[in-house]
């Protein structure tokens, strides 16, 4: 039983290692290097997008807040 487990473990480790080496060699052919060609510019785009979305979120909330104030003001005006 023990021997069996041992075998299983070695196979698993070997499989894992194989996957890892495979993964590293199968990493997209560096000669194509789309990654380096784009130079990670997409990260910059994502960051700028996040910042713009954050500002938009803020504007939205301020908008709602002011709308609430306007409503209260109008109610008081009527009263």
């Amino acid at each position: 039983m023990r021997n069996h487990l041992h075998k299983l473990a070695t196979t698993a480790v070997a499989a894992l290692l194989a996957v890892r080496t495979f993964a590293s060699s199968a990493a997209p052919d560096w000669l194509e290097e789309t990654f380096y060609r784009s130079g990670k510019i997409n990260t910059v785009i994502a960051v700028v997008t996040v910042v713009l979305l954050g500002l938009a979120f803020w504007m939205f909330r301020s908008d709602r807040r002011l709308a609430r104030l306007e409503k209260r003001m109008n109610e008081r005006h009527k009263a």
């Binding site: 380096y36 130079g39 990670k40 510019i41 990260t43 910059v44 960051v47 700028v48 910042v51």
Partner: peptide, 11 residues
């Protein structure tokens, strides 16, 4: 870093 050095201005 490469192009992401530009994040310096936005992060």
């Amino acid at each position: 870093l490469y192009e992401t050095i530009r994040n310096l201005f936005f992060h």
